[in-house]
Every structure is written in structure tokens, then in C-alpha cells.
Design a protein around this nucleic acid. Structure first.
Lengths: 201, 201
DNA sequence: GACTTATGAAACGCGACCGTTGCGTATCGG
DNA sequence: CCGATACGCAACGGTCGCGTTTCATAAGTC
């Protein structure tokens, strides 16, 4: 009330540096991308990497989990893909995206963290699922359901089960090839064709 | 040469306690089973949990990775299963074993570690693969190959690909259900049937 | 300019583990 | 019994990161 208020009631004094904030989150993702687990991430390392004082970090996040959660949230989910005509092609495109994203250090390490530290940091897991997994599964579910309608897939299809089969198969091969990058470009296509046709007759 | 030598040349002095060794490894697996990552495992915690002096640990293992590697190796791979008559039933049995083992804290946490820290501790990853994964994949490969021979599976089957599909699908659902134990008993059967028949026609 | 808040840097005391050492005791062979 | 080795325990100095504080300075409002 003391002064002219803007719509958002500027709190007076020097405003927080947006640049520092970006640098902090960037540094966090950087370190994660180098293979650090959450427990090995130190605020001091992040501050040093970001060229920032620890004060600046503590002023914004009261604990490490909050910071990492925000860092994960800042990972833009680059929209899975735009779907096309055939169910087969769409599925291949989705798996192909998974494969290429798993090739990036940051994404891969974040996946590792989310997968293996879900017990200790449930909020991170939750955020990761909402942020990264759900959009993609939703896209795949949509493709599968459309396939059922158009008759490209069997009418009695169990969508959740099929989704797990496709995504799980892709993930398995990604994990198997860990380190070596011997993931063939045509792997998504082979997976989709194999799953669509089935192993029998 | 100075004394009567047994076949293994006993080194004289008090022999190392086999019991302490077991206790140390057991404590290590215990802590891992509680969700500790490798980097969070402290020798002091292990010693304390095992009721053992740090000296006793350092006398046997020069670093943490060696200890954990030995601990992993001590996880008995309880022989996947004895196979039966039909390919379908054998596959279900294998997936069912995966599912039930994933329900155990120790196994699950060890899996997490092996999966996510494969970069930082390649020797652990290697040991885990040799110890736990390969026997099971070998069993599944055998089943699949037999199915090709008997005609229960298509002649042009890509065995590695199919294995990844089955195992990956199971793993996916195990991961999805993390925390909640809503894994239906009939899930392995539904996965196998779905994969065998395929999603089409 | 006066006031307020943020910033980077440095230092604080604190606790957790590190890997090592010394101690008194226990357990083996000879 | 003796010498040798292992044992559990406690303590060592050292490092790392914690979360906080102090400081001089920068960047905004009035």
C-alpha cells in the first residue's frame, strides 16, 4: 500500500537474476548428464559449475530434491511426434523417438535416475512420469486405439498391455546396448513388425 | 618349506573368519536392499551393520566396488526354472519368475543399481549381467529356439528381438507398478499370449 | 541519494566417512 | 607356551559437503 503497485506487486529491491536461475538449473542438468546420482549432486558443485554463490541457490530452493525436481521439469518434452497415416508407421516413429532420445546423455541419465531412485525420491519420480512418460504413453495409446477403430489392430486389443510390450521391448534393447551404440536404425521397425505379427504361425 | 605343508599351504596364524565374511556380504546386500545406491554405501555402515570392525573389511577388499561385486556374485541365481512341455508355458514360467523375483527388495534394488549405475561401475554391471541376466536369457533363448524347431513359433523368428520383447514387456510392467503391488498374477500369461498372437488381425 | 533486496565470495562450525593405526583379545600351528 | 595372524573397538588426521553468516557490491524503487 505504501507505493504504486504493479499488477504483481513488485517486492522492491533488486530483483532476482533470471540468468542465475537458468545457470543453476543448467548446471544441475549438466552434472546429472555426467552420470551423477541425486545423492552425489552437491549444492557446492552445482554452484561452482553455475558460477554462482551458494546463497543464490539456497534462496530459491530449500532442499536438493526441490531443485532437481525443477530441473527435470525444465526438460522440454519436445512433443513426441506428429502422427501420420498408418498405425505401423506411427508406432515406429514413437519408438524411434525413444531410441534417439535415449542416445542423449542428459535424457538417458535422467531416465536412469527416475527409474532407479523412485523409492527414495518419489516426488522426482512422479514429476518425471508426468513430464516425460505420460505424454508419450498417451500418444501411443491414442495410436493404438485408433488402430482398433480402423481395424488395423484386433478388436479385443488390451491397450495397456500392448503399450507395455512395445515400449518395454524398445527400452530393453536400449539398455542392452548400453555403452556401445550398436542400436540399428531399423530396430524400431523390426520391433513393431514383430509385435504386430506375433511370434506364432 | 619350514613346516609340514597341507595341500593349500596354510599361512599360519589365526585363520580369517568365514562367519565375518558372510556377515559383511549379508550386511552389504541388506543395505542395498534398503535402497542405498553404491555411492551411498559406506564402509562404516556396512561394518556396523555386520557387527564387524572396519579392519576386517579392509583386510579383504581394497575398495567398495570389489566388495559390492562380490556381494552381487553371492546372490545365488536360483536356476530360472525347469522347463516343461509347451513353449507357451515355459515362457510364462520364465516371466513369472522375473515378476516374483522383482517383488523381492534385494533383487529389485540390485537390478536398479545394475541398470542405472552401469556407466560408473562397469565391473558391477558386467558381473550382474553374467550372474543374473545371462542365465535367464540363455534359458529363454533355448525355449524360443526349441519353439522354432517344433513349429510352435514361426520359422523366421528373430530370437534376440523376441527375447527383448518378452523380457522388456515384463520389465515395463514391473517398473510401472513400482510401489503398488498391483501386478496381477496372470500378467505373464497375458503378455505371452499377446506377444505370440500379435496385435494385428 | 536513500532504501531495499540480490549477488558472488569467503569463512564459519558441524557431522559423515575416509583409510590407517594401536590396543587388548582370540585362535590357529608348532 | 610361543609366534603369528585375525578379531572388534576406538581413536587418529583428513576431506567433503552441509547450511549459515558476513561482507562489499550491484541493481532495482521512491
Amino acid at each position: 500500500m505504501t507505493t504504486t503497485e504493479t499488477a504483481t506487486a513488485r517486492p522492491a529491491g533488486r530483483p532476482r537474476s533470471e540468468k542465475a536461475e537458468k545457470a543453476i538449473i543448467e548446471a544441475t542438468l549438466d552434472l546429472i548428464g555426467e552420470g551423477m546420482g541425486v545423492s552425489e549432486l552437491s549444492i557446492e558443485a552445482i554452484a561452482s559449475r553455475a558460477g554462482v554463490g551458494k546463497t543464490t541457490i539456497y534462496r530459491r530452493w530449500s532442499n536438493k530434491e526441490d531443485l532437481v525436481a525443477d530441473a527435470l521439469a525444465s526438460l522440454k518434452a519436445p512433443v513426441p511426434t506428429l502422427a501420420g497415416v498408418s498405425v505401423r508407421d506411427d508406432l515406429i516413429a514413437l519408438l524411434d523417438t525413444m531410441m534417439r532420445e535415449a542416445g542423449q546423455d542428459r535424457t538417458r541419465c535422467v531416465m536412469n535416475i527416475a527409474m532407479s531412485e523412485s523409492d527414495r525420491y518419489p516426488r522426482l519420480f512422479e514429476k518425471f512420469m508426468k513430464q516425460a512418460v505420460e505424454p508419450r504413453t498417451a500418444a501411443m495409446v491414442a495410436v493404438l486405439e485408433r488402430g482398433v477403430e480402423t481395424g488395423e489392430l484386433r478388436a479385443d486389443l488390451d491397450v495397456r498391455l500392448s503399450l507395455g510390450t512395445l515400449a518395454g521391448a524398445m527400452m530393453w534393447h536400449i539398455k542392452r546396448a548400453a555403452g556401445e551404440d550398436d542400436l540399428a536404425d531399423d530396430l524400431p521397425g523390426r520391433i513393431v513388425d514383430s509385435v504386430l505379427r506375433g511370434l506364432a504361425p
